[in-house]
Computed example of a mutant assay.
Amino acid sequence: MTTLRTRVAAPIALALAVAIAPALTGCFGNPVESIIEGATGGQVDLGGTTLPDGYPEAEVPIIDGEIVFGGSIGDASGAIYNVTVKVSGESAIDDIKAQLEGAGFTTQVGGDTTGGATYIGNTDAWGVLVVVSDSGDNGWVANYTVTATSGQ
Rank of each mutant, 00 (worst) to 15 (best):
A19F: 10
N30D: 13
A13S: 12
I120W: 07
T2A: 05
G111F: 13
Y119G: 02
I35C: 03
T107I: 12
V128Q: 02
I73H: 02
Y119V: 09
T149M: 13
L129Y: 11
S150Y: 14
G74M: 05
A98E: 12
G139C: 08
P56K: 07
N138W: 09
G48A: 13
V68T: 15
G115S: 06
I36C: 00
D94Q: 13
T25C: 03
T84F: 01
N143C: 05
L24W: 05
L129V: 15
A13Q: 03
I63C: 01
V87W: 07
I73A: 02
G102H: 09
I63Q: 02
T147H: 04
A125W: 02
V128R: 02
G116A: 10
G151L: 12
G115Q: 04
E57S: 14
N82H: 10
W126D: 00
T84V: 15
G110Q: 14
G127I: 12
I63M: 02
E66V: 14
K86T: 15
G104F: 09
D124C: 01
P22Y: 13
P61G: 07
T107D: 06
A148N: 06
G47R: 01
S88L: 11
P31C: 09
A148H: 08
G42K: 05
A125D: 13
T149G: 06
I96D: 03
F28N: 06
D94C: 04
G121R: 03
L100V: 12
A117G: 08
G70L: 11
A148L: 14
N143E: 12
G116P: 09
R5Q: 05
A19P: 02
T2M: 01
W126G: 01
S34V: 13
E33N: 11
S88V: 13
A76V: 14
V32A: 05
S88A: 15
P22V: 14
T6H: 03
V131C: 01
Q108C: 00
L16R: 01
G102Q: 12
N122Q: 15
S135C: 05
I67L: 07
R7L: 06
D75N: 03
T49P: 00
V87T: 10
P56G: 08
E57P: 00
G127P: 01
A21Y: 06
A10G: 01
S135I: 04
T6W: 04
T2I: 07
A98W: 03
S150P: 04
A125V: 08
L46S: 03
S34I: 13
S135P: 00
Y81S: 04
V128P: 02
Q43E: 11
G74E: 07
V68N: 00
I20T: 15
T84Q: 09
R7S: 04
D112Q: 12
T40D: 06
E37C: 07
V85N: 03
A58I: 09
C27L: 13
V146P: 00
G136L: 06
A9G: 04
V109S: 03
E37L: 08
E59D: 15
T40F: 07
P31L: 09
E101Y: 10
G151C: 04
G104R: 05
S150F: 12
V130Q: 02
G110A: 14
T118M: 10
D53A: 15
N138C: 00
V141I: 15
C27P: 08
G54V: 11
Y55K: 06
A13G: 15
K86W: 07
P11D: 02
V8H: 00
D124K: 07
G71I: 09
